[in-house]
Design a protein around this nucleic acid. Structure first.
Length: 650
DNA sequence: GAGCACTGC
């Protein structure tokens, strides 16, 4: 069987029209259908085309598919295609618009947070981030304006893609005419097919698995395991360059520290060889060596790589429900990740991937990486599911169920924050928090009801600044010292929350000036993002009819208000730059980016926004407080619960 | 006196 795709440049058929435009097709692509339409495998391997070409071909068939469904179903007419990342949504939309001869935002458009290039009446194919489509289910639980929904890059198992899969499974029971297309790059397509088709609906879901690589990549393993993959990576890159070049090299390591060390070792080798063998110096400037984390695995693509050096490890963040602490841990990659990394060597010609582990070790690798939902804090996802009406969370059709402790911990946290009641149902404040497009911890920093002072001082600017990262740019060495001096200009004695507020206000006064940011060593990107988020938060406050009050010159009230949300995150100074947590009596270290990194708070007490375990447990975004405030809020909470447990602050 | 894997609303 072969499906035709129509000529680029012609417009899409109207719903209900005949499909005679097939006659305009310029070519065909072979489609293997092993049993039925339920498993559609498109082979694009025979043509040496760049990935977008493959993508758009699939999209042609989906457009065709989609139009057919519209014609049959008639209860919607938009084809949605989700992507886990913003850039992917915009760039694929752009490419497809060009190829079908549509103006971007007309027949083909995209929607990502803060940015919509689409027309409600004219757009037929809508690319969007998975998070945006999930948000839409909160407003339209049956997603009734779509006739076809395609989830792309499902193998990445992002939080929103997994949530969408569960929700879509339920939607399809109520709207069997909705056509679902799942696109996954790995071998787990069969499992996904079972997941979706266990309901035995008449119209089964379609799983597309893209056999992607364009050029062959040879895999080479080490004969023996290496005790130091960073040195080995540098040595391998050097070896490639001197004996196997020419060709650009991409090295996968797990983090910044490793990357710095690897680059150092490479430059040392370059220095030594410069002395004794001048000609080899000419090779390096011509051929790049790129040392990267797994950002180069999917998010950033670099063309022209011929050699990949893969250390075989990845750093992931794992949430521990017992301590509510996230830990950054280095673990072996999955087989799927290793394949993905190797594939980076074959984008423009055939290549070689050097894996810095023995072949025997590759047999022990997990097939795929664990879905994010199984090792992340579920507080926000679960509130969203409750808001969608999944009251029995344990029965939600998770594509992969998270550990029960993680679910229980999230429910407990939501209850203690007053967002769900003892019966597990959402409170009025809980409903508002779910509506806000930020994490629960951030939404709670925003005023959500008319309150008495000092709770009234909840501040959307601070909330927005806490939800962006890397506001201060502090490079290594001498420029770092200068940047440090620039940062001091914004420092508030009271701590990081007020310092961030100062930075934001100065940025706003500069009319969001880029040069202001570079003069003061601030990230323009992060501050612009904070500004958009603040705007979004204010919009919700208006919707909830809450006035935005100014907290200028009222630092004390503002700090008290911070305690009302963060009293569980209290800590006491114990000397040598370290603190003890009020809960759990854990030793905490101040993150070097904090203004309290260099000095002891006068009262000896702080609250903090978040903690994370790397080599040691660090706390970020701290504010100095008075210890009685902790007791105040802790007792108030315990009174409300009617429990006798006080808060240990001794 | 020392650091932060990667997304998304």
């Amino acid at each position: 069987m072969s499906l035709k795709f129509w000529k680029p440049g012609t417009s899409l058929p109207e719903p209900g029209s005949s499909l005679d435009r097939d006659t305009q097709a310029e070519g065909t692509i072979p489609v293997a259908t092993p049993s039925s339409l339920s498993s559609l495998s498109i082979s694009a391997q025979r043509e040496n085309l760049p990935i977008y070409k493959h993508r758009s071909k699939i999209l042609y068939t989906i457009e065709k598919h989609g139009v057919t469904i519209v014609w049959l179903g008639g209860d919607g007419h938009v084809i949605a295609c989700t992507q886990p990342r913003r850039v992917a949504a915009t760039s694929v939309a752009n490419r497809v618009a060009t190829e079908v001869g549509s103006l971007l935002g007309d027949e083909v458009g995209y929607i990502i947070r803060f940015e919509s290039v689409s027309s409600p009446s004219r757009t037929r194919i809508l690319y969007m981030t998975d998070g945006m489509l999930f948000r839409e289910t909160l407003l339209d639980p049956l997603l009734s304006r779509y006739s076809v929904i395609m989830l792309d890059e499902v193998h990445e198992r992002s939080v929103y893609t997994d949530l969408l899969m569960g929700v879509l499974k339920k939607i399809r029971r109520k709207r069997p005419s909705l056509r679902l297309i799942i696109s996954s790059a790995t071998l787990d397509a069969a499992a996904l097919l079972d997941y979706f088709n266990s309901d035995s609906l008449d119209d089964p879901a379609t799983i597309i698995s893209l056999e992607g690589r364009m050029f062959p990549v040879e895999i080479a393993y080490l004969a023996e395991p290496t005790p130091d993959y960073v040195s080995k990576a540098a040595a391998t890159a050097w070896d490639i360059n001197t004996h196997h070049g020419p060709g650009d090299v991409l090295i996968f390591l797990t983090g910044r520290e490793e990357i710095d060390r690897c680059l150092e070792e490479l430059s040392e080798m370059l220095g030594t060889n410069k002395m004794k063998n001048a000609p080899s110096l000419l090779l390096l400037p011509l051929h790049a060596v790129i040392v990267s984390t797994n950002i180069a695995e999917a998010s950033v693509t670099i063309d022209g790589i011929k050699f990949v050096v893969d250390c075989g490890f990845v750093k992931i963040r794992i949430f521990n429900p017992n301590t509510s602490l996230s830990t950054l841990t280095t673990l072996p990659t999955s087989l799927a990740s290793a394949t993905q990394r190797a594939g980076r060597a074959g984008r423009t010609s055939s290549g070689i991937c050097y894996r810095l582990y023995p072949q025997s070790a590759s047999l022990a690798l997990q097939r795929t990486s664990p879905p994010l939902l199984t090792h992340t804090d579920l507080t926000t996802p679960i509130l969203l599911l409750l808001s969608l009406g999944f009251h029995n969370i344990l029965k939600f059709p998770w594509p992969t169920p998270p550990p029960a402790e993680n679910v229980l911990r999230a429910l407990e946290g939501l209850n203690s924050a007053g967002l769900i009641g003892e019966d597990g149902r959402m409170t009025i404040v809980g409903e508002k928090v779910a509506e806000m497009p930020v994490e629960v911890g951030i939404a709670r920093m925003v005023p959500l009801r008319v309150e008495r002072a000092p709770m009234r001082r909840r501040n959307p600017t601070i909330a927005a600044m806490c939800s962006v990262q890397d506001v201060f740019i502090i490079p290594d060495g001498a420029p770092g010292a200068l940047a440090e001096l620039e940062r001091r200009k914004f420092t508030a004695e009271e701590g990081d929350h007020l310092t961030l507020l100062n930075v934001y206000n100065a940025f706003a006064r500069s009319h969001s000036s880029k040069s202001f940011c570079s003069r003061h060593s601030l990230s323009f990107r992060s501050l612009s993002r904070a500004m958009s988020i603040r705007g979004q938060l204010k919009k919700y406050m208006q919707r909830f009819s809450l006035p935005l009050e100014s907290c200028e010159g009222d630092a004390k009230r503002l700090r008290r208000c911070l305690v009302s949300g963060l009293w569980r995150n209290g800590a006491r100074w114990v000397g040598d730059g370290s603190f003890k947590s009020v809960r759990g009596d854990k030793t905490l270290y101040v993150h070097p980016n904090s203004v309290l990194f260099t000095r002891k708070p006068r009262s000896g007490w702080v609250v903090f926004h978040e903690m994370e375990e790397t080599k040691k447990t660090q706390i970020r975004i701290l504010t100095e407080i008075e210890p009685e405030w902790l007791l105040d809020y802790g007792n108030r909470y315990e009174d409300n619960k009617g429990s006798s447990n006080g808060v240990a602050v001794g």
